[in-house]
């Protein structure tokens, strides 16, 4: 975004183009630049700092399609004051945007390989741009598998879209829930359980995982059991990002600034930190 040419601490003005509830506590907001013509390109895995007037600013990953950037798409969950206010926005309301920031998923490197995408909860949102990218370039990738774990069947994000991934784009998708009540016909159990039976060639695969830190720790162990190298595993981490540009220090994870060295890390680079208490 052109934002970077000026002062990266100054939000650009965007307006709400569309807002849609995904589940009981998640929603997707689509934004368009309100005045200027801005370059909205981003790389899968990057995030923006979204500012709601008078309420505050928070980092939210971009969940749109990197190959079609006529608007900015963010899916998030209502967890704090800013997301609460964001959900109350109407079409046409203004929102401040800084970004995009951060280190993206390795989509180029994944070409010619099997791709295993593992998401937990709201962690599917930052993974979706990878899926969109793959859909636009499907023949450049080998076997593509999505493993998605969430709390209950009611909490499944992008439920309609998921069906097309498999049907239209040869992206095998396995959804599992921690708890199922009622009519759920799918898997029950944690997402890590699915890794063992996922069809991919560990010697020629790239895995990308995004979800709560505990989930990722166990996901990585399962992937390792399958024989995939640490250097072929990528994880997206969460820390308290305030500035987005590595100046405020809040998001440090060991020596890494999650906002600019991450949020996506190659696992072997941060493996030593995954086992450190309160790092």
């Amino acid at each position: 975004m052109s934002n970077h040419n000026g002062n990266p601490m100054l939000p650009e003005s965007f307006s709400v183009k569309r807002i849609k509830n995904e589940t009981d506590d998640t929603f997707t907001v689509e934004l368009q630049p309100s005045k200027k013509v801005l370059d909205l390109s981003f790389e899968a895995g990057q995030f923006n700092m979204l500012y709601i007037f008078g309420v505050g600013e928070i980092p939210i990953s971009i969940s749109g399609d990197p190959c079609s950037t006529d608007s900015l798409v963010h899916t998030t969950r209502v967890v704090g004051t800013v997301t609460k206010a964001m959900r109350k926005l109407h079409v046409g309301d203004l929102i401040g945007v800084r970004g995009p920031f951060g280190n993206p998923w390795p989509v180029e490197e994944a070409k010619g390989k099997d791709v295993v995408l593992i998401a937990g909860g709201i962690g599917l949102a930052p993974i979706r741009p990878v899926i969109n990218y793959i859909i636009s370039n499907r023949n450049k990738f080998e076997n593509v598998v999505v493993l998605y774990g969430t709390r209950t069947p009611k909490d499944i994000l992008y439920a309609k879209e998921i069906k097309f991934w498999e049907k239209k784009h040869r992206i095998q998708t396995f959804v599992t829930v921690d708890r199922a009540i009622g009519e759920w016909e799918g898997n029950v159990g944690v997402v890590t359980k699915l890794v063992a039976r996922t069809p991919f060639d560990p010697k020629n695969a790239i895995a990308m995982a995004c979800g709560p830190e505990v989930m990722m720790r166990f996901t990585v162990r399962e992937l390792q059991k399958r024989g995939i190298a640490n250097s072929s595993i990528y994880v997206s981490t969460e820390r308290n990002m305030k500035c987005g540009i590595g100046h405020c220090g809040h998001c440090q994870f060991g020596a890494e600034f999650v906002c600019k060295d991450g949020p996506v890390f190659r696992y072997d680079k941060i493996a030593h930190l995954f086992d450190v208490w309160e790092v």
Partner: peptide, 16 residues
């Protein structure tokens, strides 16, 4: 047991 423990943690809940 391990899988059950993970399920118990309710890692996707809004309270982290």
């Amino acid at each position: 047991l391990q899988l059950t423990r993970l399920q118990l943690m309710d890692v996707y809940s809004a309270n982290g």
